[in-house]
Nucleic acid binder design. Sequence first.
DNA 1: CGCCGCAGGCTTTTT
DNA 2: GCCTGCGGCG
Length: 732
Amino acid sequence: MDVSHLIDPLNPAQREAVCAPTGHYLVLAGAGSGKTRVLTHRIGWLTEVERVSPWSILAVTFTNKAAGEMRHRAEQLMPSGTRGLWIGTFHGIAHRLLRQHWREAGLPETFQILDADDQTRLLKRIINGLGLEEARWPARQAAALINGWKDEGKRPGAIPVDFNPALKTQIDIYRNYEEHCQRSGLVDFAELLLRAHELWLNHDELLKHYRERFRHLLIDEFQDTNTLQYAWIRLLAGATGQVFVVGDDDQAIYGWRGAKVENVQQFLRDFPGAKTLRLERNYRSTGNILIAANAVIANNPGRLGKQLWTESELGEALDLYAAYNEQDEARFVIDRIKQAVREGGRNDGCAILYRSNAQSRLFEEALMVEAIPYRVYGGLRFFDRMEIKDALSYLRLCGNRHDDAAFERAVNTPPRGIGERTLDALRSRGRDQKLSMWDAVQAELAGGLLAARAKAALRAFAELIEQLAREHDALTLAEQMANVIERSALKAHYQANAKGQAESRLENLDELINVAARFERSPEDREAGLSELAAFLAHAALEAGDAEGEAWEDCVQLMTLHSAKGLEFPLVFLVGLEDGLFPSQKSLDEEGRLQEERRLAYVGITRARQKLVLCYAESRRWHGMDTFNRPSRFLSEMPNTVLQDVRPRVQVARPSAFGRNASSFLAERGLLRGGVVETPPIKLGANVRHASFGDGVVTDFEGAGAHARVQINFANSGRKWLVLGFAQLTVL
DNA sequence: CGCCGCAGGCTTTTT
DNA sequence: GCCTGCGGCG
């Protein structure tokens, strides 16, 4: 049999991993070393060469994007088809299991997924209902605690109270929340995983079935697994499953949300005979970029050890720009992007990576001024937009009347005269009699004490939902969607009420109808017995819907370092490299967190293919205050041979009173090279000429050395402050 | 019911 | 500095 398509595109290390005899493997795959390729080719190898049925293979990723990519590439490599192959996210797979075995999992058939936002709202109501003070017991904090417990596999009863009254209250909230979710048929994200785990723990026959079926498990981004995900993998593997995990301990950047890098080492202990393979050859970046990356990450202790190498050339040095302030930083970056585009590059080949979202604004403004198209990653997901969630809440109620999260949202959006008092009456009845809001409405209508007007409004609402549900039997999904948007009066509501945003909200609602029209239930969904509607609602909860409706053509890419993981760009700007920003202030006190920041730096550096530009600002307005941070310690961890100081061409003659500037920083570390600046220094009182402002006299300067700003009194244009290095001044 | 003004807070994010 | 969320008022 010809398997050349499977092994020819591989280097020796990749080939060793792909063609390894069945068994347990830990593949340590450095950045840009072709890990997706190894995973997909491994699947191809198992099916085409080892004659393993696709039916016994389960491949797990973290994001839908990664799952989609893997599926796509696997299909190309498996001419005999991928029937029965499961590729999905942890959550997607857990969801599928719960749909198929809802009875055993103790769920109603119509259970729905509660997203993070709905979860917080629900918790808020529960905290209120328990008579607790919201300020003392913030819903967001409760959500974080509960999710953390679930990620550790803990139910309320399994948490030791330790006579800690605050903890006891938190557990009470947890227990109440669980009861509420159970009654409403709601499952949050962490619950999907926890239930799927318990499903197997409590049902030997199911576990046996899946163990017999999935003999081959492949896990992507293994360093990001949390306790529960790892437990789930171990449980499924049992004594017979062959586990092939791919990951990079140096790219573990999600410890703060429960990921356990330790799982990587734990894997070697838990799976006897597991072999470690390393992919260290990098196909992405130039030599200099890799030298910098290797040097920075080498400062982390306790690594499993990997050294990226490449056969491509050293390439350009990394540019280091010490900006005067954050404005100067933005301006510099945009200038460089313009230059790159002038030289034949594309906007979408440029990425600006920052530590914190708040940093994006300045770059956005600068890009807007220059009319350069850009895209900011990580905004609100399509399905998380208010108008979308409003519309979907009606469909959710049609699918499951007891979905209280949907009820609370739909009942008064748009406003229909059902006030807070009425709702409170319903909530307390629900609490007392353990009823869903829907049933509480029925009970009130049948003999409650509410005012006639409130009852009439509730009756109208209930009737609307019933009617929509009745009509839906005869309609396609898209028609149902359109019908709901029309009949709920959401459309009219947004037309009248969304000041300034009406247009985009209405557009999004239209797009939602389009999305519904394009939506196709997967064969797996069908198999699991999901209706078109249920499948669509699950899709809305589990998938970002990023691609929906928006065209991103040739845009400069702006994103956090976290969102950049897995991506690559020819030209990368790593900005805000200042101690306190990156590494962030909050990670400075704790060694472990600092190491995670360093891994984040490693991720950032290794996103660049051709050219990496590093920036920091000597002063920065941050949270409304002027701050003066020293350059990031990660900069000083890079060897001077790969760094090149970007310096303005002109220097102020008088030495600065401040010690901290680019030159002195670099000099301290022996990084200053290149000697003196070519242009004669500018002195106070010098006559200078500027291309557009004309002639003038230097009257003042501030800032340090090469990055000083000078004040010039122009004969015709008045007094101006200019950044020396970029003003292109000629001394007369 | 909806608008406005003020106070507090503030790393990172997927599902 | 900007966004969120809350409370008060019309």
